[in-house]
Design a protein around this nucleic acid. Structure first.
Lengths: 233, 233
DNA sequence: CCGGTAAAACCTGTCCTACAAGTCTGTGTC
DNA sequence: GACACAGACTTGTAGGACAGGTTTTACCGG
């Protein structure tokens, strides 16, 4: 047996406060000083426990104002993964493509039954600009906007957040060349056509094929294995 | 503009050390004291940054020995979510059922093409014991073992980890009654039959139906909204 | 030369104090 | 009532000190 560490005690205490209903989403937590006194651990240990919960999207702190319980939405917690996928090796990214393919295909098929004409027109404009663009960064941004614009329609925030996480790293690898871009553009049009037809199955197939195509390109090119770091804060 | 905080500086420095290839999975990181000196922030801030990365599964610390870079596997990082799903309200759990249904169905269909006879026999034994069991806790454990045993076969660790996360909370809600258990048992047998037939489509459908059934039960019963906390450390 | 043991160096875990910097509150003035 | 301001409160950061672990080193006996 080993003594329970102070930070673990603090973490358990904080989790209990949230889990047993004492604190609700948006509530302000007791101050670090009060928690330190109530849980019998130093303020430093309390802060480390809060950092843990903060990293996981459970709480957020505002300097001078206090620490607040987060909204406790699954999408927020899933979103915290995006901070770590940037550290994964390429092999892991390829492994995650399978998740992305399945989830994005499902999300798109849901969206096919939910989109309205105005949204579809907006997506069409996006594709027009994407097809006309010659700047790689702009292409990446428009591609991302197109995909996420569709996924957000699916009605399940967790699903959208997960797809966003899985997409976040792929954007760092430029697989678009003039030749592949024509295939990519055709894939986007196929997805949009399926949405216009309100055809979930066709949309799902088109999305899965599009993602699978990206995976093939990435697997072929195997870009320089240099990792990357997020932008400066 | 606002001054970049010390912890952010530390976090960026640590991430950079891993991302730029200075440190590889399993390597030992510089000591807190050295990092404090090199990055120009106090040791406390370094520790908070390390806590953040630790919560996200990027590093792990061993008292007295040092802090080590994790294996940087996607499955590990996805697994960190299981610590937070215990805090989500029931509504979020129901939202996550859609993810679980899609992912588990896909995983099971992959497993259908990969399982061997010995494994299938083991799964059959599990079902025999599950059907004979009258203890709710034992039923829950066997059910979990059956499902995860299949999912692990799929060959994608990230997929397995994600399903494990999505399942982790559902186990806390007892939806099995003598009547629902008969339906559940039949669902398990349908999945196993599909696996024995090496039929991915049938396996996928059976798994999706089984998960959907669980969701319906949970939605009907809407158990007491008391949240729960993990076991003591 | 080898093996084992004890000491030393090192590292993380924890607590304490002190202060800086930001936010909120209540009071008093106009 | 609106505004300004002082005070209380809260988080952010730094530094020191020690406890409790682990790893390395040095020493000694065989």
């Amino acid at each position: 047996m080993h003594e329970v560490s102070a930070v673990e005690t603090a973490l358990h205490g904080l989790r209990t406060l949230i889990a047993d209903g004492s604190l609700h989403p948006g509530d302000r937590m007791p101050s670090e000083g009060e928690l330190s006194e109530r849980l019998g651990v130093s303020r430093g240990s309390i802060r480390e426990a809060i950092r843990t919960l903060s990293a996981l999207g459970v709480v957020e702190t505002r300097r001078g104002a206090g620490t607040y319980v987060g909204e406790l939405r699954a999408a927020d917690m899933i979103g915290t993964l995006s901070l770590t996928v940037g550290l994964l090796p390429l092999e892991s990214i390829l492994e995650l493509y399978e998740l992305r393919r399945v989830l994005e295909a499902h999300a798109v098929s849901l969206s096919a039954a939910r989109c309205d004409d105005a949204t579809l027109a907006g997506l069409g404009d996006l594709l027009d600009r994407l097809e006309a663009s010659e700047d790689v960064d702009e292409q990446s941004a428009l591609d991302h906007e197109f995909h996420m614009g569709i996924v957000r329609l699916c009605g399940n925030e967790s699903l959208g957040a997960m797809v966003a996480v899985l997409r976040s790293r792929s954007r760092a690898y430029p697989v678009l060349t003039p030749e592949t871009k024509r295939v990519s553009d055709a894939g986007h049009r196929a997805i949009l056509r399926a949405l216009v037809s309100r055809d979930p199955v066709a949309a799902s197939v088109a999305a899965a094929a599009h993602v699978a195509q990206s995976e093939v390109w990435l697997r072929e090119r195997r870009p320089a294995p240099e990792a990357m770091v997020g932008p400066e804060a």
